[in-house]
């Protein structure tokens, strides 16, 4: 059970939150080509290392925020409210 630092609630058990995966910039829906759109939908960097990802403080303040987590060690650093 890793600790996730919520900007409002402080470090919380990860089960109090929901991980929504690595941050992928959303293309402009009006102008994006289908292939750009599908890259956004499906392709992921999926690195074995540091990744910027979004969490939702589901059982707490209900804030979406991003942190950096190392997927090889589950080490967590940095936080930023989105």
């Amino acid at each position: 059970m890793i600790l996730v630092p919520c900007p409002n609630c402080g470090p919380r058990n990860s089960s109090d939150l929901r991980n929504t995966g690595e941050v992928v910039p959303r293309p402009d829906a009006a102008t994006a080509s289908l292939s750009e759109w599908r890259s956004y939908l499906y392709l992921r960097d999926n690195p074995a290392g540091w990744v910027t990802e979004t969490w939702y403080c589901r059982s707490g303040c209900r804030t979406y925020f991003t942190i950096e987590r190392n997927t090889a060690t589950n080490e967590v650093r940095g936080l930023e409210r989105t």
Binding site: D28, S33, L34, L41
Partner: peptide, 13 residues
């Protein structure tokens, strides 16, 4: 013909 809506490119396709 909206500027944006969830899933717009896929709706069009």
């Amino acid at each position: 013909d909206k500027e944006d809506t969830v899933g717009l490119p896929e709706l069009r396709a």
